[in-house]
Simulated assay, not measured.
Amino acid sequence: MNTESSSMQEFLEQIRRDAPDNLVIHNPDSNILQLYELNAPFMILLETCHEKDNFFSIYQITPGNTYSSQSTYSQYKALSKRPLHQHSCYEIMFVLSGSITNHVENQTFTYGPGQCCVMNKNIKHCEIVAGDFQVVFFMIQDVFLEQLLEEYEEVSEHKTEAPGMNPIFQLYLDSLYKTSRFHKVYLDYLPVIPADSILEQLNPLFNFMLEEIRKNSPGSLFFLKGTFARFLQILDTPSLYCMARVQSDSSSQEYIFSKICHIMEASRGRSSREYLEKQLHYNGEYLNRIVKKYTGKTISEYGQDFCLAEAGRLLTKTDMSVSAIITELGYSNRSYFYRIFQNAFNETPLEYRKKHKDTSVS
């Protein structure tokens, strides 16, 4: 047995020996696939890694049970040699700092601060360890989601305008249908505002959940469910996040293009190649080739389509002035905006408004 394998086995043995039986690893010696079975309705797992300090820690908490462990970075890095695994529950991975790479089925993706991945029970995956990061994992059983969904539906019944189904609830509901219960689906959430602003909202929620689940006092589960529902609501807020639903049989380039589409839609086309490169962790030229393959346009040209579509919507659905719309969409050169708008629609903005104005707008 080589040194890396030995370190990995020692670390796993320590966790199996000392940790509560809330998360049981089936087929621990398999080189093909492992199953992680959650024996609690809800678990929070906080992982912190500092490569330079050769430090790694796990903080695992379920109602009534807390477990923490520290090891060296080299021991934890050996876990990247693990086979892919599945969960008996739904897993939400949220990056608090640094970045982490996730091997999902036959593809590999890197997630940065504020980014989130939600996986159903059929997804095979494994985190690849490198560098410095802090990541929180939420592991959720069906019964916990059922309770949240019941309350969600009760609230929706009393609203004049019912909201659309939260994608995470939809992921759970899909698993109940024969036609989709075996589908391998995950949701990727990318922030459309700076990650620091997202974390300012979410860190207090995460800390509150950790404290309530640790205390496990009367009423703790009630507060936990409410706070977790707030977290799901933030993920489902278009001004904060764009979401891509991915079925794992799609090709890598299809997946990346779908992410680009969602980011462009959320930012109204005002996402540069450099911004996409930072968000998606791929070379800008490679991303440009993907967009060119599916649209025949460059990233800049493709983004401009979204921006002009939004300009058309604002002209026909609102009473905003043309100057206000130009400012709203982030253009500093009025003449340039007029030129590209007329090239796209063969009309000036005012002519377009007069011809297509929604008469129901006061």
Results as ranks from 00 to 15, higher is better:
N2Q: 04
S6C: 12
M8I: 02
Q9R: 15
F11M: 10
L12R: 15
I15T: 06
R16P: 04
D18L: 15
P20Y: 04
D29K: 07
A40V: 01
T48V: 10
T48H: 06
D53M: 13
I58L: 14
Q60G: 12
P63Y: 06
G64L: 07
S68Q: 15
S69N: 13
Q70D: 15
A78P: 07
L79Q: 10
K81V: 00
R82K: 04
P83N: 11
H85F: 13
H85N: 05
C89R: 03
Y90S: 03
T101W: 02
V104P: 02
E105L: 04
Q115W: 05
N120V: 03
N122L: 05
I123E: 01
H125E: 01
D132R: 00
F133R: 11
V136K: 01
F138G: 03
I140S: 08
Q141N: 14
F144A: 12
E146D: 11
E146N: 13
L149S: 02
E150F: 12
M165F: 06
P167A: 06
Y172R: 12
Y177K: 15
Y177V: 10
H183W: 05
L187S: 09
D188N: 09
Y189K: 10
I193R: 07
P194Y: 12
L202C: 08
P204K: 00
M209E: 07
I213T: 05
I213Y: 13
L221Y: 03
F222H: 10
G226E: 01
T227A: 11
F228W: 09
F231V: 11
L235K: 07
P238Y: 02
M243S: 03
D249L: 11
D249T: 15
E254C: 06
Y255G: 09
A266N: 09
G269W: 01
R273I: 11
K278H: 15
N283K: 09
N283R: 14
G284T: 05
I290C: 07
V291Y: 08
Y294F: 15
K297Q: 13
S300G: 07
S300P: 00
Q304M: 14
F306S: 08
C307A: 03
A311G: 04
G312S: 15
L314P: 07
L315F: 07
K317E: 14
M320V: 00
I325H: 02
L329Q: 06
G330S: 01
I340W: 09
L350W: 03
R353H: 04
K355M: 08
H356E: 13
H356C: 05
T359G: 00
S360L: 09
S362K: 12
